[in-house]
Structure formats: structure tokens, C-alpha cells
Amino acid sequence: MKIKEGFVLREIAGKAVVIAVGEASKTFHGMINLNSAGKDIWQGVADGLNEDEIAKRLTEIYEVDLETAKEDTHRLVQKMYEAGVVEG
């Protein structure tokens, strides 16, 4: 899985948001707000990690067990697919 071309993570007023740029902005209007864990999941996808690797990374950053991290990661990745910002 990877982030589709034209979607970028930006910090706006201290908040992490995903916006569409270039050609992607013609079909995707608006932005996706991410909390800190969401930002870390997004970065994991951008780094080419799979869901299990991202979940493991979350357990190293946050006080969360692996099962919860896997569930949270899967839920956000599915939403990212539904929003059309990831592929593969």
C-alpha cells in the first residue's frame, strides 16, 4: 500500500492535515484531520510499512498494546482506502 500521488501531510495551525495538491485536488476537495496517532499511521504508510509494522511502531511510541495498535491501524488504513488517498 502507498499514498496516492497528490496527497500530502501538512501542519496547519499546529494540526496535522492531509490535503490534495495538483491533479488530485480536482477530484478531492477538503482535508483530512489527523490526531497524533493518525499522523504516525500516515507516516508509516508513507514510509512503505505494512499494517503490522505500523502497529509495532505505535507500541514503541504510545502506551498501547499490540492488539489495540493493530485494530486502530487497520481502521484508519481502511478509512484512507475509502477516502481514496491510498492504493495498492
Rank of each mutant, 00 (worst) to 15 (best):
M1N: 07
I3M: 04
I3K: 00
K4S: 09
E5H: 08
G6A: 01
G6D: 04
F7S: 02
V8A: 00
V8R: 14
V8N: 03
L9R: 07
L9Q: 09
R10N: 13
E11K: 15
E11S: 13
G14Q: 09
G14F: 03
A16D: 09
V17A: 01
V18M: 09
A20N: 05
G22E: 11
E23V: 06
A24Q: 06
K26Q: 01
T27V: 08
H29E: 00
M31T: 06
L34R: 05
L34E: 06
L34I: 06
L34A: 04
A37C: 14
K39A: 05
I41P: 09
W42N: 11
G44L: 02
G44M: 04
V45T: 13
A46N: 12
D47V: 06
L49S: 00
L49E: 03
L49C: 00
N50F: 09
N50C: 05
E51G: 00
D52T: 10
E53V: 11
I54H: 12
I54S: 12
A55Q: 11
A55W: 15
A55K: 03
K56A: 15
K56E: 15
R57I: 13
R57Q: 13
L58D: 08
E60G: 12
I61A: 01
Y62S: 06
Y62D: 09
V64G: 03
V64M: 11
D65K: 15
L66T: 08
E67I: 15
E67D: 15
T68V: 13
A69Q: 14
D72G: 08
D72K: 13
D72R: 11
T73V: 09
H74P: 02
H74G: 10
V77K: 07
V77N: 00
V77S: 01
Q78K: 05
K79A: 10
K79V: 04
K79N: 11
Y81P: 03
E82S: 08
A83N: 01
G84Q: 14
G84E: 07
V85T: 07
V86S: 07
V86K: 07
E87F: 10
E87R: 10
E87L: 12
